[in-house]
Write a protein that binds this DNA or RNA. Structure first.
Lengths: 212, 212
DNA sequence: CGCGGCATTGACTCATTTCAAAGGTGGTGG
DNA sequence: CCACCACCTTTGAAATGAGTCAATGCCGCG
């Protein structure tokens, strides 16, 4: 008999795996929330991935992890699998392999979505796109969403300053695009405008005319 | 006998696979350069991935591609594989499966690197990090690198304006961090400063003190 | 109660965008 | 062969959006 998987419970702030440490495992979130981030030489933190239940992470071809993963929510539960078995896993049971493969492609999709959000121009667009992304990934909530992360985390996820995040959310609220019943409790009112990233619905965007 | 792979040759500007079209294949670049991008509703283009020989792309769980892939260089050669066979492929020959799996994880790494470059603050840092990334991926060139893409492509890759790209390159040249022997021919002189993203090496960054 | 972390808001500065113009290059066709 | 055109590149000047610095309020917890 051989060890295949281990499940562990983390509290808010606890490290799941550390940048620079041996990449002996890959992981999936079972419950809770986690972030995967890189600390830059200048001390800034860039959140690369926001991990919700079902999300897979920790894949790398290197011997060491290039990023740190940290639990964000109390009671975050993560299952880890020995990396050495990944090859065998893919070679043997084709149904499990299929599933893991899909999860990896999902991770690819998450990163692409993140990239597209970061590629937006204004802070309004970024925050708006972030809210829509979160709502989509938290599908199941009926009315309103509960932000899984703090303003600071949003800032580091979008690579903008905390003040700008806060200001933008206030702005979106004043303009009636969202409702804020609490710092974490948000309800999307005007999804269209949010997707379009309307800095202001007036003053027509010249691009929109040029490209239909 | 069954069709497994097809190789095709594309000229600069030709589309390899189109956003919204059936995702029946996945691809690898054999020779040349390609980009994978998304056209936003407002007409802007975001380059998601820069594809060099050996790079794999086109993986998705959706029935349609979410992005368009376009050849950038004349004589770009791409091999495509039917998606339906991917499962069998991974299930059967474990050595090929291993290789494809590594390529997918490489694609993951490319996206993460891209994300980190985009997460930089100033245009100087972004362009500098981009140049270093390109140099790394083009490893093999001895002295200097030949940019595989235009200023416009760099702009859409970094989500900054063309003018800023051009200005920044001029600035880096004037400050002696790089040499520009032609629009595409670049030589990195001061790699340290480029990595640090020195807007100016003076005026110490407070962060650097706080975090060692 | 007081502390630490989180959130909000204001004022100022400045980098980047935007608008505008001009030079360079390669390809195509007359 | 040359002219023209489309595209790429560079630079300038003005406008503005986001970062930075600073202060305050909020809340949970020891």
């Amino acid at each position: 008999m051989q060890l295949v998987a281990e499940t562990a419970r983390y509290r808010r702030g606890e490290i799941i795996c550390h940048q620079g440490h041996a990449a002996d495992f890959w992981y999936t979130v079972v419950r809770g929330v986690a972030t995967r981030y890189v600390i830059r030489p200048d001390g800034r933190r860039q959140i690369i991935d926001l991990l919700l239940p079902g999300d897979i992470f920790g894949f790398t071809l290197w011997r060491e992890h290039g990023s740190t993963s940290e639990a964000i929510a109390e009671e975050t539960i993560v299952t880890r699998y020995p990396r050495c078995r990944t090859g065998q896993l893919l070679g043997s049971q084709s149904d499990v392999a299929q599933s893991v493969c899909e999860d990896v492609i999902n991770a690819l999709g998450r990163l692409e979505d993140h990239l597209l959000v970061m590629g937006r121009i204004t802070a309004c667009e970024k925050v708006g796109a972030f809210l829509i992304e979160i709502e989509r990934r938290l599908a199941g909530q009926q009315a309103g969403i509960m932000l899984p992360i703090s303003r600071y985390d949003i800032a580091d996820y979008l690579a903008i300053s905390v003040e700008t995040v806060s200001r933008t959310l206030s702005d979106l609220r004043h303009r009636g695009l969202i409702q804020l019943t609490g710092p974490r409790a948000i309800k999307i009112v005007d999804r269209e405008a949010l997707e379009a990233g309307d800095g202001e619905s007036s003053r027509t965007n010249p691009w929109r005319r040029a490209f239909q």
